[in-house]
Design a protein around this nucleic acid. Structure first.
Lengths: 140, 140
DNA sequence: CTGGAATGTAACTATTATAGTTGCATCTGG
DNA sequence: CCAGATGCAACTATAATAGTTACATTCCAG
């Protein structure tokens, strides 16, 4: 399987907000660029809000970044939208036979490797900031 | 979401086969250690067979590795069971608005980052061989 | 102070992937 | 030849995702 589009859409949303500092970034407007339903956008801005990346309030039109795009990493966005749970990118079968030496020890042998692999991926996301994405969008 | 248990189970299967060079590793026997249905095992040994990691034939009891565990990497197993499609660990929303500068260019901006992140993860898997896993299982 | 416009959220649907299961055809070696 | 394997199709149950409708709540402009 693969990581939900929530992550890609969240990056899209934050990029839009950052490049629309003058206008009001309403869920409806954002939805027009993402090409989806405004409720999907609100769900995500809600998560980004809880994570402290975005300011958005009931009744008040428009979402705003809480800080500079240079101070937001893709890893923070990834965590905000719960793209992958902590240490669970790889799933491990639950009940191997404890009476078999392999069954008893296989999880202990592979989980650390899985953890390292996941961290390697997340380290890449940590090194990329939102403004690096924004800078790749032509000014108009 | 997360990567299917197929990957973890496949590692379990190959570890079992390697540590059972004397006995016959039938799907039923393997299923007993994994604690699942033999058909699930056969599906996986079938994939491992197609990938050339395992030799298994209709009617003939027992699967065997086609080469030393030192020559099998976790990445090869990962590919064999189709744990993640090429360059699609992260999914990207399909139809952003082409009339919006952000919508038009967002995929081009994030896909390379996603690709790098996925490769970083896969590189870790490439550095781990099956025998490193086998060596973590107590001899008896 | 009120009405329009926005957000928040619950509830439902459709779609997809996974994991398990049954049943049976097919193959093979003793 | 036949008992015991594997291969595979078909079905089920479960879970996550993405989209949608409906509506309560909140705020601000006039």
């Amino acid at each position: 399987m693969n990581i939900s589009t929530r992550f890609a859409v969240a990056i899209h949303i934050l990029t839009l907000i950052d490049s629309n500092k003058d206008g009001k970034s309403t869920s409806e407007w954002i939805a027009g660029s993402v090409n989806t339903n405004p409720v999907v956008i609100r769900r995500l801005t809600g998560m980004l809000n809880k994570a402290g990346l975005v300011e958005v309030r009931p009744g008040v039109a428009g979402a705003k970044l809480t800080r500079s795009a240079a101070d937001i990493t893709l890893l923070q966005i990834y965590r905000a939208v719960n793209a992958v749970e902590e240490d669970s990118l790889f799933s491990v079968h639950e009940h191997p036979n404890p009476d078999c030496p392999v069954g008893k020890n296989i999880a202990g042998a592979i989980v650390p490797v899985f953890s390292l692999a996941q961290k390697a991926m997340e380290n890449v996301l940590q090194e990329v900031t939102l403004d690096q994405i924004v800078h790749q969008i032509p000014v108009s």
